[in-house]
């Protein structure tokens, strides 16, 4: 990489995590929650999303490319850290470590999830309620989805906290504490939405 570009890569990494990836995650979780209203509602919502005009461009520029960059650069960041929570067991240090772990878990989850749904679709499978019901009927996959979704939501919520620090929005310790409470609320609410969706399939 060219010299002295790191600042901009890091800022881009932080920005992409919230816009568009974070926004996409919220939308994805909320729309899938239609499953709690029954098979028909879910299939209707999925169908609407699939029939958006210019879908492939939206997918590539709003989802795939940002996630790809965020993942590749994120792995680099995760592996340049030397975690030391055993010596410094402070709350933020734990969040720092969990942010890196959940990032890796989320990446594994997303890779599998995309393979099983979007790539399967490209090969002719239909993404609908039945497909998810099928996947989630295995207790192992159900657990994998619960862990993957919670890891992704944690990574987003805590990443939102770091985003606000990294861009210089929350500067004072007090604003950072309030941001902690706010992002905990984001984590709890989105986790509820995500997990209740999963239970709608079993």
């Amino acid at each position: 990489m060219a010299k002295n570009q790191e600042f901009y890569w890091r800022r881009l990494h932080s920005l992409l995590g919230v816009i568009p990836i974070g926004l996409f995650v919220i939308m994805h979780l909320v729309i899938n929650n239609f499953a709690t209203r029954g098979e028909e509602a879910y299939n209707g919502a999925t169908h609407f999303m699939e029939s958006l005009p210019f879908l492939i461009f939206l997918e590539v520029f709003v989802i795939y490319l940002p996630i790809l960059f965020h993942a590749v650069y994120g792995i680099y960041i995760a592996f340049t850290a030397k975690n030391n929570t055993s010596r410094f067991g402070y709350f933020r240090n734990w969040m720092f470590k969990l942010q890196r772990w959940t990032g890796v878990i989320t990446l594994i989850f997303i890779a599998w999830h995309v393979w099983e749904t979007r790539i399967a679709k490209a090969f002719g499978a239909e993404v609908n309620f039945d497909m998810m019901e099928n996947i989630l009927s295995s207790p192992f996959m159900f657990a994998f989805y619960v862990i993957g979704i919670i890891a992704a939501i944690f990574h987003f919520a805590n990443g939102l906290w770091s985003f606000m620090v990294s861009w210089g929005i929350t500067v004072t310790p007090r604003s950072q504490v309030i941001a902690t409470y706010f992002t905990i609320a984001v984590f709890v609410i989105l986790s509820y939405i995500g997990v209740s969706t999963l239970f709608a399939f079993v």
Partner: peptide
Amino acid sequence: GGLANCGNSQN
């Protein structure tokens, strides 16, 4: 190696 390397562990 500058500011952007901070990962907010706050240790």
